[in-house]
């Protein structure tokens, strides 16, 4: 570890007028894409340090992922996906796809197979060819909204996180047959309160390990928290570890495995956020970077030496603006 995580300082900060929900670097690492509660897509040119906003979406931008072939995919609450080509200077749209009739909650890319998956509010999960956005198929509709989706590295399986009340659910699907091979109720991340009859929790982030053997479900442990991530074995559905934040309340919104084996989680509540480093099996916190507001997303630069975090700032319980921080990786 080059620098203890809690001593890492941001190398650059960018203010954004609206709260942010997602971010990703392009494959070359020059551009950082960020989006959130606005139609404009924020582009940070890390080589020049400039920030710009480009049009293309008609609604909030909820998910951004780095894809192969020099593309970054962005999706919005109207069901649109845009593939941005970054190989020739400034990002340009290569194709635009009206992929779903409603809000897309999540995207996932499989670099090996050249495919990506999209998941929507109606529980529809579709798989596409990344190069041209052509459809490859869709799963039988889930019974509940699909909050998360992750293609496994083998190119044959896909994991979904749905919004089943009181029992948010992870499911492993066989892409060829569409069958559900494994279903796990993640009751630890439910925040249901009978007095209001409202489910306050749910799976807010989903990722799989580089070898596909582990699934990480992010959210909050119960109604009162803390922010929490749960590690499951993909093959058996057995929960291996619970990673709980020191922060009271708030959610973990995302997790990512670092190339060196550490697991990183981001989350928080308004006025307090964090990016935390865990050892590979999640048993031990190795350090934390605190942030001024809830960290909603992050991405590790392709060189593995930097990362970017989006967080939100505001008063009371209302985020009013976003903040992008670029860090030199302490790991």
């Amino acid at each position: 570890m080059a620098t203890p995580p809690d001593q890492s300082k941001p190398t650059r900060e960018y203010q954004v007028a609206t709260p942010l929900l997602s971010c990703a670097f392009d494959a070359g690492g020059r551009f950082l894409f960020a989006g959130g509660r606005d139609r404009g897509l924020v582009i940070v040119d890390t080589s020049s340090g400039t920030q710009s906003v480009i049009p293309g979406h008609d609604s909030w931008i909820g998910s951004i992922v780095r894809a192969g072939d020099g593309l970054v995919l962005t999706s919005d609450y109207q069901g649109r996906v845009i593939a941005w080509d970054c190989r020739n200077g400034a990002p340009q749209p290569r194709w635009t796809l009206e992929a779903h009739p409603c809000t897309i909650y999540a995207l996932s890319v499989n670099l090996g197979s050249g495919t990506f998956a999209s998941a929507d509010r109606d529980g529809l999960v579709r798989v596409w060819r990344t190069a041209d956005g052509s459809p490859l198929g869709e799963l039988p509709r889930l019974e509940f909204p699909a909050y998360g989706v992750a293609l496994l590295p083998d190119g044959k399986h896909l994991v979904t996180a749905d919004r089943q009340p009181q029992k948010p659910r992870l499911q492993v699907h066989d892409l060829a047959s569409g069958k559900v091979l494994l279903s796990v109720d993640v009751t630890e991340l439910s925040g249901y309160r009978r007095v209001e009859d409202i489910e306050w929790g749910g799976i807010r982030g989903l990722t799989v390990s580089p070898d596909g053997s582990q699934i990480v479900a992010c959210g909050r442990n119960g109604y009162d928290g803390p922010a929490c991530a749960l590690l499951y074995e993909t093959g058996t559905g057995r929960m291996r570890q619970k990673l709980a934040s020191d922060l009271k309340g708030g959610f973990y919104y995302g997790a990512r495995f670092h190339p060196n084996g550490l697991l990183l989680t981001v989350g928080g509540d308004l006025g307090k956020g964090e990016l935390r480093f865990w050892n590979a099996d999640g048993a031990e916190s190795k350090g934390v970077i605190t942030l001024p507001g809830p960290a909603t997303a992050f991405d590790i630069h392709p060189d593995g030496k930097r990362f970017a975090v989006t967080s939100n700032v505001g008063k009371g319980s209302y985020p009013d603006s976003g903040l992008i921080t670029l860090h030199e990786s302490p790991v």
Partner: peptide, 15 residues
């Protein structure tokens, strides 16, 4: 008509 009290995920609930 119940459940309009969307303190969280307002946009999902309103859909």
């Amino acid at each position: 008509h119940f459940d309009w009290d969307a303190h969280q995920d307002n946009f999902y609930w309103h859909q």
